[in-house]
């Protein structure tokens, strides 16, 4: 699954964003900044369906229902919240770096042989 499929595909994504738009303004602001951050960091879970993101909306909706402020839910350090959320996740950058290391290794072996 690609981010493209998730976003253009559409029904699931549109339903997801509709839930985001139904949140109070403060919650929407924080959600959108979180999404931006996660798109940059690129944990692989991001493309394994909308669960990572929709889980946050679940959390936020319940916070709203309980009458909490958004920062009461996430804590003031929203970046720390995001990092905790993807703590054990591989990112696409990790995968890329691993493949670079592998290519370099192979190239070195070739040189060693000749």
């Amino acid at each position: 699954m690609k981010i493209q499929d998730i976003i253009e595909g559409k029904k699931e994504w549109r339903a997801h964003m509709a839930r985001v738009k139904a949140l109070p303004q403060d919650y929407q602001i924080v959600y959108k900044e979180i999404q931006k951050y996660l798109f940059k960091v690129g944990p692989v879970e991001l493309t394994e369906g909308t669960e990572l993101l929709s889980g946050i909306v679940d959390l936020f909706e319940e916070g709203v229902a309980l009458g909490k402020g958004v920062l009461e839910v996430t804590g003031r350090d929203v970046a720390a919240f995001c990092d905790d959320l993807i703590k054990d996740s591989k990112t696409y950058a990790d995968i890329y770096q691993a493949s670079v290391a592998q290519e370099v290794n192979q190239a070195m072996k070739k040189i060693a042989k000749t």
């Binding site: 690609k2 981010i3 493209q4 998730i6 976003i7 959108k32 999404q35 931006k36 798109f39 940059k40 690129g42 991001l46 493309t47 696409y92 950058a93 995968i95 890329y96 493949s99 670079v100 290519e103």
Partner: peptide
């Protein structure tokens, strides 16, 4: 970065485009 391993660059490019698309729409 594309000399080798262009394939592994794909999900990264896909992610950036997603970021750009969503934020532009916003």
């Amino acid at each position: 970065h594309s000399d080798f391993t262009g394939r592994n660059l794909m999900p990264i490019l896909d992610g950036v485009l997603g970021l750009l698309e969503e934020t532009a729409a916003d």
